[in-house]
Simulated scan of single mutants.
Amino acid sequence: MTRLRSTPSQTVGPFLQIGLIQEDSAFAVPLATPGAVWITGRVFDGAGTAIDDAMVETWQADLAGLADDEIHSDRRGFARSDTRIGRFAVYTVVPSPVCDGAGGQQAPHLDMSVFSRGLLHRVVTRVYFPEHADQHSVDPVLATVPPERRGTLIAVRDGDGYVFDVHLQGDGETVFFDV
């Protein structure tokens, strides 16, 4: 049997660093934006080993009332970071609650996609914030997650920012959504 090498469409691998990550990719808002925070974390494989060739992207519905001149027009609520140094880091503001279209509200959150070796398609999760726990109980998306797994979607406050680790498999696997 002939053994064929993997192609870029079969593995993410080192290709993330070619053209996808730019110097300012990690900034959803400009440096020194009032109220901005760093959200950092690691991506772990099923064996609990941190992955150093993954990439995360975050989006958010709004930027908590910032004026248009306070945001990069091409970065409005979007950031991208790789894990070359063992962790990812994105700089943003904690968003406001979002109308869910049915008259209710979703708790403040970021949407996050994770790209990594071994994944043919991205996985999608959410990052909720601990100070909005009162809103978590009425969030229609979070309500679909079994109570014992909801903690995998809540960032941990760390100094002036947050930590959010992603576990692709195994103990403490992060909840991912079909989108």
Rank of each mutant, 00 (worst) to 15 (best):
T83K: 06
T144I: 10
R42H: 04
T2L: 15
D24Y: 11
I154R: 05
R80N: 10
Q22M: 08
A107E: 03
Q169G: 09
L153D: 01
D134G: 13
G19V: 09
G19C: 08
T49C: 12
F176Q: 02
V94T: 14
D68L: 04
A26S: 06
T125N: 06
A54K: 00
L63I: 14
L120S: 10
G41Q: 06
A155H: 00
A47I: 07
Q60S: 10
P95G: 09
Q17H: 11
G77S: 05
E173W: 01
D171A: 11
Q105P: 03
V141R: 15
V179M: 08
L119V: 06
T33E: 00
V163S: 05
F164I: 12
A61N: 12
T125L: 13
G19W: 08
E57Q: 13
H136S: 11
W38R: 10
V175F: 07
L4Y: 14
V90D: 02
F176R: 03
A28N: 04
Q10V: 03
D69G: 05
S6C: 03
L16T: 11
F129M: 00
F27Q: 07
T11I: 15
V138Y: 02
A32H: 12
F88L: 05
L4C: 10
D158W: 05
G151D: 13
Q105F: 07
H167R: 06
G41S: 05
D165W: 13
V29A: 06
M112F: 01
I21A: 00
T144N: 08
E173G: 02
S25F: 02
D165C: 05
F177E: 12
P30F: 07
V156L: 08
L20D: 07
D45Y: 11
D52I: 05
A36C: 01
A133R: 14
F177Q: 10
L142R: 02
G86F: 00
D111E: 14
F44A: 00
D45K: 09
V138S: 08
D158V: 06
G48W: 11
F177L: 08
P8F: 04
A50N: 01
V37N: 03
Q60W: 08
P14N: 10
G35T: 09
T92S: 15
H72L: 11
A155W: 15
Q17I: 10
A36T: 02
I21K: 00
D165Q: 14
P95M: 11
T92G: 12
S96W: 08
D134S: 11
E57M: 10
V166A: 01
F176V: 10
D69F: 05
T33F: 01
I154E: 13
E131L: 15
Q169P: 03
T144M: 07
A28D: 04
A28F: 04
E148H: 07
L119M: 08
A79L: 01
V145Y: 12
S116H: 09
P140H: 13
A143P: 06
A50G: 07
R87D: 15
R42M: 15
L142E: 00
L119Q: 14
L110E: 15
V163D: 00
F27P: 02
R75F: 15
H121N: 08
R3H: 11
L31M: 14
T152K: 01
T58W: 02
P8E: 01
S73F: 04
